[in-house]
């Protein structure tokens, strides 16, 4: 009996452990993002390599079929770079400076997975402990830009594609209080962009490649918008 209870407890712990509730969006704290808020660091996590994703192709054979069917697109995807998103750090810093804030651009990339976990049951608290960065860089708040996936996604129902491939750009921007590790801003970004007219143009896939860069640009705008005092990013062409 005790063994059964023990197994059940482990199963519950595993299942509930996997079901982490997604962080809800939090509007930017106007106080924190101003001259009165103290020093703000702006950092970016390493950009992921562009890749192809096939949600719905969940069985092993389904995924192998989807990967084989889209191998030419995957090959082209590997030649692309998400580096157009890199200037975000400097662009956010510039917008914060316009607001009168004391800003420090944190050089290099912050590897979030390497940070220690932050154990807290409180809502709106980061699961990783960023406070060490506060001490290291002498900042009171940290604006973090994290791009999680970039590339192309094509939906599947097991073996059958249910959509054309589309460019995708996903991530989150957040501001963290360096004393409490609590979010002062949290913005999930999820961009999907289809090719203009046709998509199946191997080997270079110009329509999808164009959508790839469009998705990055739209994502950049979404990250920047909360910091622009008039709500617009004001850029015309980069």
């Amino acid at each position: 009996m005790n063994v059964r209870l023990c197994h059940a407890a482990i199963a519950v712990a595993i299942l509930t452990g996997c079901a982490t509730a997604p962080q809800n969006p939090i509007a930017l704290s106007e106080t924190a993002a101003s001259a009165q808020g103290g020093r703000i660091g702006v950092a970016i996590a390493p950009l992921p390599a562009p890749d192809t994703y096939f949600p719905g192709a969940d069985c092993l054979l389904c995924y192998a079929t989807a990967a084989a069917t889209n191998s030419a697109l995957t090959t082209q995807t590997k030649t692309l770079s998400a580096s157009d998103a890199l200037p975000l750090r400097e662009e956010i810093a510039a917008l914060l400076k316009k607001r009168g804030a004391d800003v420090k651009v944190i050089d290099g990339e912050v590897k979030i997975d390497a940070l220690p976990d932050f154990a807290s049951q409180a809502p709106n608290v980061a699961p990783k402990d960023y406070r060490g960065l506060g001490q290291q860089h002498q900042i009171d708040h940290l604006v973090m830009i994290r791009v999680t996936t970039v590339g192309f996604t094509r939906n599947y129902a097991s073996y059958v594609p249910t959509s054309d491939p589309k460019a995708t750009f996903n991530g989150a921007g957040y501001m963290i209080d360096m004393k409490t590790n609590a979010y002062e801003w949290y913005l999930p970004v999820a961009v999907i962009k289809s090719a203009d007219k046709v998509w199946d143009e191997p080997p270079a896939y110009p329509g999808l490649t164009n959508a790839f860069y469009q998705a990055i640009e739209i994502g950049r705008d979404q990250f920047l918008k909360p910091f622009a005092s008039n709500g617009a990013t004001a850029s015309t062409s980069k």
Binding site: C62, S163, D196
Partner: peptide, 15 residues
């Protein structure tokens, strides 16, 4: 036209 909304969600299928 924008085709951004074209296509259906990805869902597993039991045959």
């Amino acid at each position: 036209a924008s085709l951004d909304e074209d296509g259906m969600a990805g869902t597993p299928m039991m045959y």
